[in-house]
């Protein structure tokens, strides 16, 4: 994220909603402000904000933007909604 822009707020609320709804609340979320920690952006080679990085479970995935398109977020993170997973009998 960069600072406290409206896009930052939108992205955070979009992400929390997706995680609550689709991941059944099973997630850890860390928010980093690149204005305060530019070194982290340098190390992670981040250009765009907001950028969402899924560290675990592997593989590493990134989604850029305010996460307003839920389908794309799920596709990009390669996580499948909990309900679908349960229906298939596969743990996500």
């Amino acid at each position: 994220m960069t600072g406290t822009s409206s896009r930052t707020g939108t992205a955070i609320s979009n992400l929390r909603r997706i995680c609550e709804q689709e991941l059944d609340g099973q997630y850890d979320l860390e928010i980093i402000d690149v204005l305060q920690f530019p070194d982290v952006a340098e190390d992670e080679k981040i250009l765009a904000t907001p950028t969402l990085i899924k560290s675990l479970p592997l593989p590493l995935r990134r989604v850029i933007g305010d996460l307003s398109d839920k389908e794309k977020v799920l596709l990009g993170l390669e996580v499948r909604p909990v309900r679908t997973a349960n229906a298939d009998g596969v743990a996500s």
């Binding site: 960069t2 979009n14 952006a41 080679k45 990134r62 850029i64 933007g65 398109d69």
Partner: peptide, 29 residues
């Protein structure tokens, strides 16, 4: 400021974004 594309990083765009992180890195450097 190494902003060259990394073949190991796969990313998807969802919604609007800016290049604030890049700018922050340049300013920092």
């Amino acid at each position: 400021v190494d902003a060259s594309p990394d073949p190991h990083i796969d990313s998807v765009e969802s919604g609007s974004f800016d290049l604030g992180a890049l700018l922050a890195r340049v300013q920092h450097a």
